[in-house]
């Protein structure tokens, strides 16, 4: 069995965001593998280690620097990596275009049986690209999964909701997206970091995968940082009175209750 994991390189959630020319500036910002994608990579490697798969490959859409993210996955234990890029893809937020490109690459990478990804990317919170690609490919999708078993041509997944849990089965090939309770991603070990560069990393153009990206069905018309936080208010006085005053403020000023 072959497992494909799609990943995205994002900036760290601690990074201070700066907006430059209508886009988020990536100068001097630290880039990482989207944390939810790390759970997906870990799961794929675990499946392989327990004999459930022969090969784990990672795929991303991203510019050259996204190669660092792929390399981290290779150092964690993936066998090969693929990166698709075209400068036309740099336009922000074109999820529908990305989904088309991803579907094209996944088509070219066939045959594979399991597609894994993080359930959401922490930079844009869209949770849409790989899901749409799966739609295009016509495979079932099991989303936001906390526990996963693979065998007998199917996946069995546990999804945790507030107050109940659900067990879902789907035949392979299928997409499963990972939530954080799925596992604890390993660190790439030092020897594996050094070995990672000898693993194959293939770069594809849109032509290579036979896709015309087209243009997004929508355009981003604004991007702004949230207004600076205004000063906190401290409610003084005896505990009972203060509590009443605080509830009042939450209702009248903050309008949250």
């Amino acid at each position: 069995m072959k497992i494909v994991v799609t990943i995205k390189q994002t900036f760290t959630t601690e990074a201070k965001i700066a907006v430059d020319g209508g886009a988020i500036s990536d100068k001097g910002i630290k880039q990482i593998v989207n944390p939810y994608d790390e759970f997906a990579v870990e799961q794929a490697i675990k499946i392989k280690e327990s004999g459930g798969a022969e090969e784990v490959v990672v795929l991303t859409i991203g510019p050259e620097r996204a190669g660092e993210a792929l390399r981290q996955c290779l150092a964690m234990g993936a066998d090969a990596a693929f990166r698709v890029w075209d400068d036309s893809l740099a336009a922000p937020g074109a999820w529908d275009v990305y989904a088309t490109v991803l579907a094209g690459a996944l088509e070219k990478m066939k045959p594979w049986e399991l597609l894994l990804a993080g359930w959401v990317a922490v930079d844009d919170n869209a949770a849409i690209v790989v899901q749409r690609a799966a739609e295009t490919l016509g495979i079932p999708q099991v989303l936001v999964v906390n526990k996963l078993d693979v065998g007998d041509g199917k996946v069995t997944a546990v999804r945790e909701m507030d107050g109940y849990r659900e067990v879902v089965e789907a035949p392979l090939p299928a997409l499963v997206t990972a939530d954080k309770a799925l596992n604890t991603p390993r660190y790439p070990t030092l020897p594996n970091i050094m070995k990672a560069k000898r693993k194959p990393l293939t770069v594809w153009t849109l032509e290579d995968i036979g896709v015309t990206a087209g243009s997004a069905g929508f355009t981003r018309t604004g991007l702004a940082l949230p207004p600076a936080k205004t000063g906190a208010k401290i409610v003084e006085g005896e505990p009972e009175e203060a509590a009443v005053a605080l509830a009042d403020l939450l209702h009248t000023e903050a309008k949250v209750i």
Binding site: E68, R71, Q72, A75, P188, L190, I193, M194, A196, K197
Partner: peptide
Amino acid sequence: DAFGEDDARMIINEAIKF
């Protein structure tokens, strides 16, 4: 000869994580 800039950067990055 086994060490490139990318290796050094990745080692630093992972060491910080750890």
